[in-house]
Design a protein around this nucleic acid. Structure first.
Length: 506
RNA sequence: GCCGCGUUGGUCAAUCGGUUUAAGACGCCACCCUUUCACGGUGGAAUGACGGGUUCGACUCCCGUACGCGGUACCA
């Protein structure tokens, strides 16, 4: 029995890190931390044909951004190194041999073409995808149907082969799932899965069992899509003689697309306009760029909080949790069975909440990557601007849209909105306003409004009629915080300049 | 096709057989606040797939049906 809690996340480095993956990491991480255990990151790179340059480094970067760093990994090897499966090739071979010796696995020499032919031949309406199973294996080229000599000869001739699991007949297998309870499978319905591929690499099935055992994994969490292959793993744990050490399983529900059904894919993100990867991912081959939550303006804490609540809650109604609170409250048994549709609106709400909670200095730091570099020197001004526009930020990247007019004169002003009610009286008002502003010694919000009021009174004009044009002159349109606060921050000179500018255009 | 897993409002969801006329949040709508737009506040519409059981009592347990999803690769 494993006494120490050890969990693992085992991504295959083939592309961007999907939010479903991040949530699996998160649940692993929370469980490990809650039980003072270890969180292991194992790289599942057994399919060389799918190798993607940079994908492994990218995964580490994503985890670091999320604040979910592993305790053991290729970067921080523990006593169970190596942590890359491609480097553990010899280990799998050894266990595959053991299985063969025990009669629980066999060599199969069928070529891909022969396999295709078999499937074609046995295909029917009742059985559209024939499986290499207990009955069909009798008709294939494998060490069960060949003589010992034939097998030996094939092996010495370097005939390509795979090693398959010999799945027993008429057995009922039961899996105790921490989320779903007991799940049972009939072995007659499971096929003789390939354990070791022709290139000598293990498939997921062999690798996951061997590594979970060797790395002393106590609890194994993975996506629901793995549930159908659980009987293979159960069989392997039994045949390898490790049943006592088998981890406790939990199959996590899927994250579904917001519209329709089915699991969320990066296509949905493109289609509906939101990211599905934690960080930007550019495919080195296709050069296709997929947006990440980080780059689109999410705070990692908000991102994590949002994911934690997708399929889990503590029953109290609380929605905002710090990482420490999540560790404290997390309970894998309270994870839902059913999949959850991803809701980008709710995700943004979380981000808005977290932005509001940020300390001014942290907000400034968080927002700076989204400010044009030409304005990076203006931190003093930005410090004064931030409190004014903070509550209008949903994404960190909203910053410039909400604040550019504090730093630079509006390029275009919405003259149309003014034009319809424009007349000589108003024009005269603004000319006086400029004069009055020029006389001002102390320039601050209250003083500006007082002066504004005086000129309004003098002209016998309605304040409401000149407020909106004033705003548009200063910021370019019908948006932004209080006009007098804006006038204050942009300085007297700029304020006057902008009014003059607008007057010329009207 | 077969196997597995699911199914409370548009979405996330509470309820673990009875203090529920089924919480709360997002979104939506209305109003208030705001001489802009947001934020905020108040209120509102909106939910147990269907059919059978079991039980004094079912959203909650069981069975069936429907629907959805996942799997069915020398991919993970």
């Amino acid at each position: 029995m494993n006494t120490q809690v050890r969990v693992r996340f085992a991504p295959s480095p083939t592309g961007g890190l999907h939010i479903g993956g991040v949530r699996t990491v998160l649940f692993n991480y929370l469980f490990a931390k809650k039980h003072k255990g270890a969180f292991v990151l194992r790289i599942e790179d057994t399919d060389q044909s799918r190798f993607v340059a940079g994908a492994e480094e990218y995964i580490f970067q994503c985890l670091a951004w999320c604040g979910l760093n592993p305790d053991e990994s290729v970067l921080q090897p523990g006593e169970h190194a190596p942590y890359r499966q491609s480097e553990r090739k010899a280990i799998y071979w050894q266990y595959a041999q053991q299985l063969i010796a025990q009669g629980h696995a066999y060599y199969a020499f069928d070529t891909p073409e022969e396999l295709g032919k078999m499937r074609e031949q046995h295909k029917s309406e009742q059985n559209p995808t024939p499986q290499y199973n207990h009955s069909l294996r009798k008709h294939m080229r494998n060490s069960l149907t060949m003589s010992e000599q034939e097998v030996a000869a094939a092996l010495t001739n370097n005939t390509p082969f795979v090693i398959r699991l010999k799945v027993p007949q008429n057995k009922l297998l039961a899996l105790q799932d921490m989320i779903r309870g007991e799940v049972t499978f009939d072995t007659n319905l499971v096929d003789d899965k390939v354990l070791l591929k022709a290139d000598g690499m293990p498939t997921y099935h062999l690798a996951v069992v061997v590594d979970d055992y060797l790395m002393k994994i106590s609890h194994a969490f993975r996506g629901e899509e793995w549930l159908p292959s659980a009987p293979i793993h159960l069989l392997l744990w039994e045949y390898l003689g490790w049943l006592d050490a088998m981890p406790q399983w939990a199959h996590l529900p899927l994250i579904l697309k917001p519209d329709g059904h089915g699991k969320l894919s990066k296509r949905d993100g493109d289609r509906l306009g939101f990211p599905v990867f934690a960080m930007n991912w550019e495919d080195p081959k296709t050069k296709e760029l997929n947006k990440g939550f980080k780059e689109i303006g999410f705070l990692p804490e908000a991102f994590i909080n949002m994911l934690a609540l997708l399929g889990w809650n503590d029953g109290s109604g609380q929605e905002l949790f710090s990482l420490d609170e999540l560790i404290q409250q997390f309970d894998i048994c309270r994870v839902h069975k059913g999949g959850a549709k991803f809701d980008y609106e709710k995700a943004k709400w979380f981000n808005h909440q977290y932005i509001q909670k940020l300390e001014p200095s942290d907000l400034l730091a968080a927002v700076s990557p989204f400010i044009p570099s030409a304005f990076h020197g203006e931190t003093k001004l930005m410090e004064r601007v931030l409190p004014l526009i903070k509550d209008r930020l949903t994404l960190l990247s909203d910053i410039w849209e909400q604040s550019h007019f504090f730093f630079t004169n509006p390029e275009k002003i919405d003259t149309e909105a003014i034009q319809s009610k424009w007349d000589e009286a108003k024009k005269a008002f603004y000319v006086s306003l400029i004069n009055a502003f020029e006389q001002m010694i102390t320039w601050n919000e209250a003083a500006i409004e007082a002066t504004f009021n005086e000129v309004v009174a003098h002209h016998g004009i309605k304040k409401g009629d000149v407020m909106l044009p004033f705003r548009i002159m200063l910021v370019g349109g019908k948006f932004g915080p209080g006009v007098f606060a804006i006038a204050d921050l942009i300085t007297k000179e700029n304020c006057i300049k902008r009014i003059q500018n607008a007057l010329q255009q009207l």
